[in-house]
Design a binder for these strands. Sequence first.
DNA 1: CATCATTCTGTCATCGATGACACGTCGGGC
DNA 2: GCCCGACGTGTCATCGATGACAGAATGATG
Lengths: 382, 382
Amino acid sequence: MNRRATLKDVAAAAGVSTATVARVLHGNGYVAEATRRRVETAVDRTGYHINAVAQGLRRQRTSTLGLLVPGIIPNPFFASVAHGVEQEAVRHGCGVLTVNTFGDPERERIGVETLLRRRVDALLFTAPRHEDNVRLARAADIPVVQIERKTAIDTLAVTVDNWIGAFTATRHLLDLGHRRIAYIGVDPDRVRHRPGAATHPNVEQDRLSGFQDAMTRAGVPIDNDLVALGSCYYDQATGMSNSIGHDWMRTFLGLPDPPTAVFATSDIFAAGVLQAAYERGLRVPDDVSIVGFDDTYAKFFAPPLTTVGQPMVEIGEAAARLALRDLGSLVGSAERSLGFVTRLIVRASTGPPSHARYLASANNRNLNTVIDDSITSRSDAV
Amino acid sequence: MNRRATLKDVAAAAGVSTATVARVLHGNGYVAEATRRRVETAVDRTGYHINAVAQGLRRQRTSTLGLLVPGIIPNPFFASVAHGVEQEAVRHGCGVLTVNTFGDPERERIGVETLLRRRVDALLFTAPRHEDNVRLARAADIPVVQIERKTAIDTLAVTVDNWIGAFTATRHLLDLGHRRIAYIGVDPDRVRHRPGAATHPNVEQDRLSGFQDAMTRAGVPIDNDLVALGSCYYDQATGMSNSIGHDWMRTFLGLPDPPTAVFATSDIFAAGVLQAAYERGLRVPDDVSIVGFDDTYAKFFAPPLTTVGQPMVEIGEAAARLALRDLGSLVGSAERSLGFVTRLIVRASTGPPSHARYLASANNRNLNTVIDDSITSRSDAV
DNA sequence: CATCATTCTGTCATCGATGACACGTCGGGC
DNA sequence: GCCCGACGTGTCATCGATGACAGAATGATG
């Protein structure tokens, strides 16, 4: 079995024409029962596997989605989205070609060109980095989906409401009685002013606004000393983004009046916060409460972290579905954009501040909240 | 620009034949300077991207690797390996088609067939699940690489020495003065007796043996109450593998003479151990030392975990290189199998047991060890 | 001036599957 | 006996790039 069997080989083995074999393979057209059986045994005997390359050329359809991700390391968020995309694609008989861009516009461009060359049926950008690249994809006349972030180019899109996520998390802390709440996030301005960058949703701005709005509505003043804005979510070189949370938390703890709660806009930032707290011998949530974002690492920490969960797998699935639907009917009949919401997942890292423990009680307003008792039940840890 | 431009379109636009355009594109054969320029502008003007599908059919080579992974969730080990594969593939101008098998033999089979249909140039199995599937791939006459685990079928392979990893970790704890050391791992027998399963290296057996051998050589008896053997690394349904570590640690802590150190064969097991310790108000490493495995989550924990690191990205890269080299020269001139070693990464979760703190000192033998001071320096935490 | 190597370009069969089309054989209804 | 629809099967152009081959033009050499 040196050369792979072709349709022709099978046809010869079964003593029929290639058209008949094709009919058997795809189950369309008329084929006599006896012939069908003869062909089927011939297929088995020759170990024939249809050649998807030739098929793709002929059909002008490869049943392949192209997926661009900034890097599945170190952020498991993208791994989960990619997983969702793959899962949904497989359900539709499609494969997924994944390209890592490392968040670099140039690599992203190369990725787009590679995928266009390979004639993917649709192109999915996760956190697109430069609008020129999205435009390039658009020009190829295939469905394009932007996930999580969106450049100025109009395409299909799947996004998440970050404002409500941040708002709910902050509100949760306020409801517990916290007043000195620190925020560790990324500076919206630095992201905004990158040329060609994604503009909507403005993830960083929305998270910051959600925090600010919750504070303001509760009549709690925001102490600028407690608002830490970095330049990015993780360091490309070292990947050590937890050091960002760690360093800021150390700074906070050096303040005359340190925060009783910290809201970090990523589980990895929160990891650093937790580490700094641990170093000082602080108990969580007894001495300080911590909320993360993403629900990636959160449940593995000690204590398991309260966090703002994003439906990562569902996002990926929705993106794939959007792309594949658009493949079917070119008229954009249904919606071209899907929005998801976050949910606050309450685990064991948040509780009332020590000085206000007495007013704890159950005035914890319910606003899109889930209690995760899976491992360390709340009562267990407090 | 409704239809994508083809070679013919470019040729027409430049007033030459398709052969000439091809020559310009690939830079081989003779082309007059003036013609070359004319063709190049025609390429730009038409927005031409070579059709890799047609190219693949003609050349009988798709420049695509097929990668089977049990699932990039919840285990980031596979995500990192996949990342390495992708990175190396891109360097060689190849793409990667990834299929998740969820560790299910049947899904693995379907994945192999899908990838064979798509005529990938090589097939990489990460933790192959059933030897029949590997055999199926072998029959297709393309390079096959088995990563991390290996079935009875002979192919190219990339593996890691787990024995030395477990041995070193245990030795590290012994050197620190620990005698009551618990082991949380997976039962080698349950894995071994799965039909068609991977047999080499026997990851579970090697890790257990490494632990046992280190203890035995140090003359320390093994308490079977402190050896926990589960059935798998993570629960397919819930993915909550940290509960395994959590539950076992609770059991250990209920013992009359609890362990002073725990060696868990996965960072996620270790996460559960850490959580259980935290619930009891124990300090790490002051009250109990913890060592993990994989170096996936380890550095994000509080305190950052001492762990046995596996060179995940390098493994992926090596696997891709092996596959691609074999593509070039069909004669297996060089080695057909690559072995990697683990390294012990010492962070802040291990220290001398409290009753033996006085004999701590620096008799910490060096055996393939790395000290990671990146965040929480050791002295800082102890 | 003949010869030959070098440079430059075009023609066309091929990779393997597809599906429109044509052709042939039934059996039933008129 | 004729016509028509339902079956059953084969032929062949096509998708787009490739590269072997042939042919043509140019310049150099004896």
